[in-house]
Design a protein around this nucleic acid. Structure first.
Lengths: 86, 86, 86, 86
DNA sequence: TCGCCTGATAGTTGCC
DNA sequence: GGCAACTATCAGGCGA
């Protein structure tokens, strides 16, 4: 290697820092979520049920996604233009 | 309950929305992290090594935390005052 | 299926029994561990400190593991032969 | 303390060793369980369903336990002798 | 690309 | 009864 401690090391350091920064942010948001559940609990909601609702809605969304994908597929097969999206 | 579909429903909806919003953000950041790994890979770095480095640095930090926690525990067990913190 | 309630059912039963047997053993050992902590507490040791020590020792071992893993990764990345192991 | 590095240290070491030994055994059994699931999978069983069965049977057992506990309570309240057990 | 396997996350239980 | 440790489940990344 021509320059020990050179370009590659700098790049590596940069990648490491970017990743660690993003992971911090992620953790921070995860903590926020936990706080919201805590607040909901303090207001009298059952955390377990609340989590289940979130999970079900996520699943519903996933199913809707599939529906749309299927729709796209059909439309494409029929030579129809896709919707203008949003 | 005095008002069916009333206050509680509004609160619930509010909590659900806040949580879902935060989870979206979290997912977005997770995707960013994945992108950075992809970029690093494209620059010639071995993803596996990079991940291991991240992991080890995290563990080092945790280790330091634990050391301090143990010290605190010992001091507490011995009836000594904790350090003035920071 | 040629034999309803046949081979598959027997196999399933066998797997279930093996798993349940092993889980019993596991639970038994978990209880033993709890007992040891209880005994230590009765001898005057602070359980919390003891747990922390166990945790740190485990982490040290993991740390060493990780160091070696990283070394292996580097050597592999550099096309060097791995050490003759043990 | 009368004997530095004395009795207490020996006891501590002993407790640590006993706990670590037991945790190793526990881990070993956990690995065995994983192996059985793997084997079941290799035989064509759906691991997820299998896990659910195990969970349900455990729950059934717990319910039966409660039933028996209740029975014992009643019998005790009625001054009846407990069953000869097993 | 599929299956496996490790690491992240959610749920449960035991302690204070 | 709240909190923290531990366990079990799930999802994403890696190798074949």
């Amino acid at each position: 290697m021509a320059e020990p401690g050179g370009v590659a090391a700098d790049q590596l350091r940069s990648f490491v820092e970017r990743i660690e920064r993003l992971e911090e942010e992620k953790k921070s948001i995860a903590d926020d979520i936990k706080d919201v559940y805590g607040e909901a609990k303090g207001t009298g909601f059952d955390t377990k049920v609340l989590r289940q609702i979130i999970r079900m809605r996520k699943q519903d969304a996933a199913e809707r996604q599939e529906q749309e994908a299927l729709l796209d597929l059909y439309m494409h097969a029929l030579g129809m233009a896709p919707p203008a999206d949003e």
